Simulated scan of single mutants.
Amino acid sequence: MITKLIARGMLVGLLAGLLAAVFAYTTGEPRIDRAIALEEAAAAASQAAGSHAHETAEATGHSHETTQATGHSHDEGEALVSRDGQRFGLFLALGLYGVAVGGLFALAYAAVRGRVGPRSEPVLAIALASAAFTAIVLVPFLKYPANPPAVGDPETINQRTVLYLVAVAIGLLSVAAGAATHRYAARSEPWLRWLATGATVLLPVAAAWILLPEIDEVPQGFPADLLWDFRIASLGTQAVFWLGVGALFAFAARRRSPV
């Protein structure tokens, strides 16, 4: 039974990943192309400035050290993978991501079924997917939203990765604590039960939002509309993925029982 459930989850995850890839291709890729164009324009301007400095150095009898320090960086910045290859990789990566996450989602679904949440299997699938989206995507996004390729210092990538994973862990623990509070407060008044659940989720998230360090590496002059369009497209891609996981898993659920 569990094997069939995992296989169902992997198939659902694959389909949801491909749906998310279509959304990302149509909404996110144009923003990435524009960001790359801005980055290339800035690199070209820097190279032109370096060439001008080189000519000035030659005219005044200086050595080529200035050129080595400021110029000839274009070849090093060439993309190792073409844009067409990156677009294909988008579908491949989201498809594989969907397969892996779908299998884990099925395991989580099997663990909570009959113990936590709605009794109806389709409703449980949608509720679990919503909780996962909140914990894994929405909570980290509020503190560390996604940035286009042209934004971010490569030297801080490890720090940014660790902080993002910390935010994900806080989101997971907060949502799990909220679910536990909702379960243990089952005999309380409905308004008190939901108030306690919301407080259990929001308080640690708010504390983390205040205590975790800020990361602001957006260069001056970077178009604000492009930045936020990319961030919304990134958030939308994850929303489509988790909506697909919840809806498709609910559709695939065989048993129907009252909520």
Score class of each variant (00 low, 15 high):
Gln47Arg: 09
Ala42His: 08
Leu104Phe: 15
Pro30Glu: 07
Leu124Arg: 10
Val218Pro: 01
Gly9Pro: 06
Leu212Met: 12
Asp216Leu: 00
Ala129Trp: 09
His72Ile: 04
Val99Trp: 03
Trp209Thr: 10
Gly28Ile: 08
Leu165Lys: 07
Ile157Pro: 14
Ala176Val: 08
Val99Gln: 02
Ile126Asp: 03
Met10Cys: 05
Ala125Tyr: 04
Val175Ile: 11
Ala208Glu: 01
Val240Leu: 07
Gly117His: 03
Glu39Phe: 08
Phe105Asn: 05
Leu235Glu: 12
Leu107Lys: 14
Ala176Pro: 02
Thr181Asp: 01
Val99Met: 04
His54Ala: 12
His74Met: 13
Arg31Cys: 13
Pro122Phe: 11
Ala150Trp: 02
Val22Gln: 05
Val139Lys: 03
Ser188Thr: 09
Ala45His: 13
Ala177Pro: 11
Ala24Tyr: 07
Gly152Thr: 15
Ser82Ala: 07
Pro223Leu: 08
Ile36Tyr: 09
Tyr109Asp: 02
Pro30Lys: 07
Gly17Ser: 00
Ala43His: 03
Gly17Trp: 00
Arg256Cys: 03
Thr26Ala: 14
Ala206Met: 12
Glu40Val: 12
Pro148Met: 04
Thr134Lys: 04
Trp194Glu: 14
Thr237Asp: 13
Glu40Tyr: 11
Thr197Gln: 03
Gly221His: 02
Pro258Tyr: 00
Gly17Ala: 01
Glu29Lys: 09
Val175Gly: 04
Glu217Asp: 05
Asp33His: 14
Ala20Trp: 09
Gln238Lys: 07
Arg231Asn: 15
Phe141Lys: 06
Leu104Arg: 13
Glu55Gln: 07
Glu189Ser: 13
Leu124Asp: 03
Arg87Phe: 02
Ala100Glu: 05
Val112Cys: 04
Leu142Pro: 11
Glu214Trp: 01
Leu172Tyr: 10
Arg87Gly: 05
Phe23Tyr: 12
Ala239Cys: 11
Leu243Asn: 11
Phe141Val: 13
Ala176Lys: 02
Gly95Asp: 00
Gln238Arg: 15
Arg115Asn: 02
Ala24Ser: 15
Glu58Gln: 11
Thr3Gln: 00
His62Met: 10
Phe251Cys: 11
Val162Gly: 06
Asp75Ser: 14
Pro213Asp: 02
Val81His: 01
Leu235Arg: 03
Val112Glu: 00
Phe251Tyr: 10
Leu192Pro: 05
Gly236Lys: 13
Arg113Lys: 15
Arg115Gln: 07
Ser130Cys: 11
Ala44His: 05
Glu58His: 08
Leu172Ile: 14
Ala207Ile: 11
Ala53Gly: 09
Ile170Ser: 06
Arg187Met: 13
Arg231Leu: 07
Glu155Met: 14
Ala177Val: 11
Val99Lys: 06
Leu18Gln: 15
Ile210Asn: 12
Phe91Glu: 01
His182Met: 08
Gly71Glu: 06
Glu29Ala: 15
Gly103Asp: 04
Thr67Asn: 06
Arg113Ile: 04
Pro219Gly: 00
Val259Ser: 10
Leu202Gln: 14
His182Lys: 04
Ala108Leu: 15
Phe91Thr: 01
Leu5Cys: 04
Val116Cys: 01
Leu212Cys: 11
Asp229Phe: 08
Ala196Gly: 13
Glu214Gln: 03
Leu14Tyr: 02
Ser130Leu: 15
Thr200Gly: 00
Ser46Met: 10
His74Trp: 08
Val240Lys: 15
Ser130Gly: 09
Gln47Ser: 10
Arg254Tyr: 01
Val139Asp: 04
Arg193Gly: 02
Lys143Trp: 02
Phe91Gln: 00
Tyr164Trp: 07
